[in-house]
Amino acid sequence: MAESVSFFGSVRRFFRDYLLVMETRGSFGQLVQQATEDAALRQRLLQSPKQVLAEAGITLPEGIEVEILENTDKVIHLVLPPLVESGEAEGGQ
């Protein structure tokens, strides 16, 4: 089936899997899930991420900054997980 890959379809499917994975991955994943439905939470999460995380019981070591970005119609953000040395990729858990 020779078909061209649609950018939007690929991005939508990527974030579907991202949300599927997040759903099973504890408090931060649940917060991201909630923020896709709850506009007020979304705004607060974007504006004062650390405070909202703290309210959800997610505390971070001092000195770690958090930046939450949001995709729009025109801008797609992708975050790269850490670079793994070859041979380590299988043992990420």
């Binding site: 949300l19 931060f28 900054e65 949001e70 995709n71 801008v75 953000h77 992708l78």
Partner: peptide
């Protein structure tokens, strides 16, 4: 469409909320 790619650093964590896709 603009694509911006980010990576986490020693002292900063970046996370993305899916927008229109979600």
């Amino acid at each position: 469409i603009e694509v911006r790619v980010h990576e986490n650093t020693d002292n900063k964590i970046v996370a993305v909320l899916p927008g229109p896709q979600a």
